[in-house]
Every structure is written in C-alpha cells, then in structure tokens.
C-alpha cells in the first residue's frame, strides 16, 4: 500500500539535520521518498536505467536546494515538483534527440521492464498501465501519473504542477478521452 503518513516535525528535523551535513538524515529522506519519486519518474519515462539516473538527480537537486525549502508545503510536494520538472525536461530532451536522429514513434522512446517474479495477472496489469501511460501526450501523462500512481487529488495535482485547478480539471476530461481510445487498442 502507498504510505501517506506524514509527520511534519520529524520532516523538519530531517531537513535541518541534512542541512547540517548529517548523511544519515538525508539517507532517511531518500529512503522515505524514493518510491514516490520512482512512481513519478518511471511512470512518466518508463522503466529504464535512465529513469534511475533521473531519480538520483532528483535527490541531488533536492540536497542542494534544501536551504530554499521553507516548510510551507510538505517536503513530499517539494520533492514531487523537482521530480516532475526533471522528468519533463528529460522527455523534452528525448523528443529533441529522437526527432533529430531517429524515426521512432513517440511511444517507442520509452521502455519498461516487468518484474519476472510477478504472476501473469500482475504482469498484465503493469503492462496495461505502462503502455497506456507511454501512449499518452506528455501533458496528460503527467496528470494521469499524479492521480493514478500517486493518488493525488485535483488540488494537490494543481499545486505540484503549478497550474490552476481549472486547468487540471479541463485536462482531466480530455485526458480521459484520450485514455479511453488508447485502452480500446490494448
């Protein structure tokens, strides 16, 4: 199950200790949020070694920008924003690269692995979700990732993506239309 427990005091302590150079405190932050970052990065980019690199970049960027974190929002929201921005940058970079050097279709830019130890049913579920995500436009994919994989509400999604709630709502219905036509083919 996704862990949504949140302890503001503990979080603040961890941030302060990390700012003072406490390696184990930052290690705790990484352990707490790596799964959340994995959902965002791998959900949007597919499951490849590059996703892990982006994941590492997220935490390195977090480390160097911790002093800018004022604690007004949850640390998870702050990390999520970094993860979304870095992932969107990577998608843009890939699009530029593929448009210049390759004739691959949009959804072929991504790859995903499915855990071998999983049952057939679990593998199928994972495959459907990944294929649907990769076939979607980036602006819809990010919203689907936030809601379907992270379980964020419309308001939380809007906050993370720095866009008005109205924009998220209008994208929800358009994304759903696109998703329906994608899922029909799967």
């Amino acid at each position: 199950m996704i862990d949504y427990s949140y302890d503001a005091n503990k979080e603040k302590e961890l941030v302060e200790a990390s700012l003072n150079g406490d390696k184990s405190a930052f290690g705790e932050i990484v352990n707490r949020y790596q799964k959340m970052v994995a959902r965002t990065v791998k959900g949007m980019l597919g499951d490849s070694v590059f996703s892990e690199d982006i994941g590492q970049e997220v935490f390195i960027k977090l480390f160097y920008s911790l002093s800018d974190f004022r604690g007004e929002a949850k640390l998870s929201t702050y990390i999520q924003k970094i993860a979304v921005n870095l992932t969107l940058n990577e998608i843009k970079r890939r699009k530029r690269f593929f448009s210049m050097f390759s004739q691959k279709a949009n959804n072929e830019m991504y790859e995903f692995e499915i855990a071998e130890q999983d049952t057939e049913e679990r593998r199928e579920a994972s495959e459907i979700v990944n294929k649907a995500l990769m076939a979607m436009d980036t602006k819809f994919r990010v919203i689907l990732t936030m809601r379907m994989l992270q379980g964020y509400s419309t308001k939380e999604t809007a906050e993370i993506l720095d866009m008005p709630v109205g924009t998220v709502l209008s994208r929800l219905s358009r994304a759903q239309e696109q998703l329906r036509s994608i899922l029909l083919k799967l």
């Binding site: 199950m1 996704i2 790596q34 799964k35 970052v37 994995a38 959902r39 791998k42 959900g43 499951d47 996703s51 892990e52 994941g55 999983d118 049952t119 049913e121 679990r122 593998r123 199928e124 579920a125 994972s126 979700v129 809601r147 379907m148 994989l149 992270q150 379980g151």
Partner: peptide, 13 residues
C-alpha cells in the same frame, strides 16, 4: 493508487 499497487503496478529503484 492503492488498488493498482496491490494488482502489481508498482515502481521501485
């Protein structure tokens, strides 16, 4: 999100 994770849709580094 919880149901999907239980169904096998999970991501990890």
């Amino acid at each position: 999100a919880g149901k999907l994770e239980e169904a096998g849709v999970s991501y990890n580094f």
